[in-house]
Amino acid sequence: MHPDAETLLAEYPDIKMVEAFITDCNGAARGKWLPIEKLSALLSAGIKLPKSAIAQDAWGRDVPSVALDNGDIDGWCQAIPGSLKPVLGSHSVDQAQVVLTMFKDNGSPLLSDPRQVLAHVTQALETKGFYPRVAIELEFNLFDRQTAGQSLRDALPAPHQTGGNLYGLTALDEHQALLEALRHYFDTQDLPYEGVLKEAAPAQYEINVAYSDDALTYCDQIVRMQRGIRAVATRFGAQASFMPKPMEHQAGNGMHMHCSLLDNSGSNLFDSGDAAGTPLLREAVAGCLQMMSDTHLIFAPSYNAYRRFQPGNHAPTQPNWGFDNRTTALRIPA
C-alpha cells in the first residue's frame, strides 16, 4: 500500500471512496470518484483522463476542435504529492480527495492544464528572484434549493428583494449551523480559512482565505473550498452559487486576489515604506492595466461574467488603479 494511503486509512478507516480531481481552464473541478481500493494505484501510477476534460467551455461542454476533431485523446494525470486529504461528510470522514495535474505521453507538462501554466509562471518568477505571496476572497450566494416543479429562476430571491445588511451579523446567524459545518469541513482539510462575512447582494457571503507563499497549493485549496461550500450548502437545503451575476440589478460574485512579490529574504518588493510604493510596484500595475483587456478571456470567460461589470454593482468598469479605492480594478494596498 502507498505510505500516504496507509497513513490516511489508519486515521480514517471508514473511508470508502476517493475523489480525484483536476482543475479545468474555467476553474471548475473535473475528475472521478474511485473506490478506496484504487487509492494506492492512483497515488503511485496516476490515471488517464481525456485532455478535453480541462479544456471545456464555461458550461462544461466539449469544444469540438479540442475533443471531437482529434478523437478525444487521453492525457496522463499524476497525483500531486501531499495532496491526499480526508473529506468530512454529513456525519464523519467517509471520503478522501486527491488533486491531479496532467502530462503529455512523453512526460512533459501539458500546458492546457492551468495548474501546469501556473507552475511555469511561478518558476519563471523564481528565476528572477521573485516569490509571489497571494490571498483570495471567495464571494458566493446561498440560495434556497429548488422545490419540485420550480425553475432555478423562480428559486432566486424575488425581484423586489433588495440587497444590503452588508457585514450584518444577523445574516450570519441565519446560517449559523451551515457556516459552522463549513468551518469543520475546512479544518478537516487544513484549509486556510480566516472568516466569513455578509456581502452586499441578497444571500451573498464572502469567505476570507489566509495569505500563502505557495501559489500552486493555494489555488488547489481554493478549489477544495469551493467544492466544500457547495457540498455543505446542499446538506442544509441551500444551493451555493459562485455565478458572476446570478441576479440582475444586484451585486455579483467576484474573486478578489491580493498579490505581493517577495525576495529571497521574504521582504516585500512592492513596499517602499510609504504610500507611493516601489518602481517595481508601478511597473506591475502598468503591466496589469496593459494586459487587462486580453486577460478577461481568462478572468471573465462567460457572457454572465461580463454582465457583472456595471456601474454601481461593486465591480470595476474600466482598467484603472487607485490608493485605498474599492471602485478601481487595481487597489493599492490590496
Results as ranks from 00 to 15, higher is better:
F143Y: 03
T23I: 06
A240T: 06
Q318H: 14
A233M: 01
L216G: 01
D274E: 02
N304T: 10
L261D: 07
V134A: 08
P86S: 01
H160G: 14
V223Q: 12
K104L: 13
L166C: 14
M255H: 00
Q146A: 13
M225H: 00
M291F: 09
A148P: 02
G228A: 11
A200D: 12
N165C: 10
D57W: 05
K38C: 11
D72L: 05
N320A: 12
P159L: 04
G75K: 02
P132D: 05
S40A: 09
N26W: 09
E199L: 03
K48M: 14
G273P: 01
A124S: 13
Q116V: 02
R235D: 09
S293Y: 07
L152M: 15
K85T: 09
I73R: 15
A148Q: 11
H175C: 10
G129Y: 03
I222P: 03
Q250F: 06
N106Y: 08
Q146L: 09
E37A: 06
I54R: 06
D213Q: 10
M102H: 05
P319S: 00
N106C: 08
T188P: 05
I36V: 01
A171Y: 02
G82N: 08
E174L: 07
G82I: 02
I15E: 06
Y306Q: 15
D274W: 08
A67V: 06
G287T: 02
Q78F: 04
L178T: 03
P35G: 11
P132S: 03
M292V: 13
T162D: 12
W321G: 03
S90P: 10
H314C: 15
A119I: 13
L9V: 08
Q78S: 11
H2C: 10
L8K: 01
S83F: 08
A238P: 15
L142E: 07
Y218F: 15
H175N: 13
L280T: 05
E199N: 01
W76P: 07
I22G: 05
S265L: 13
S260E: 01
A28G: 14
V285S: 06
G149T: 04
R30M: 07
G60D: 00
L172M: 08
S151R: 06
Q239A: 14
D72W: 06
P333R: 02
L88V: 10
L182D: 01
A5Q: 07
G27H: 00
A67K: 10
G46S: 00
E137R: 07
V93Q: 04
C77A: 08
A300W: 00
G228L: 10
V285D: 02
V196L: 09
A135G: 01
Q290E: 11
A96G: 02
E248Q: 12
P64M: 00
S112M: 12
S44K: 01
D173G: 10
A45V: 14
E194W: 15
G168F: 02
Y306A: 10
F299T: 06
D190M: 08
S260F: 01
T295F: 11
M1Q: 15
N208Q: 11
C288M: 15
G129H: 03
I47R: 13
Q226M: 13
K16Q: 12
E137Q: 08
D74F: 04
L182F: 05
E248G: 15
D263Q: 12
Y303F: 14
V63D: 14
P316T: 05
E248R: 14
Y306F: 12
H2N: 12
L191E: 05
V209Q: 09
G322T: 04
Q78P: 06
A148E: 14
A286F: 11
A53R: 10
V87R: 02
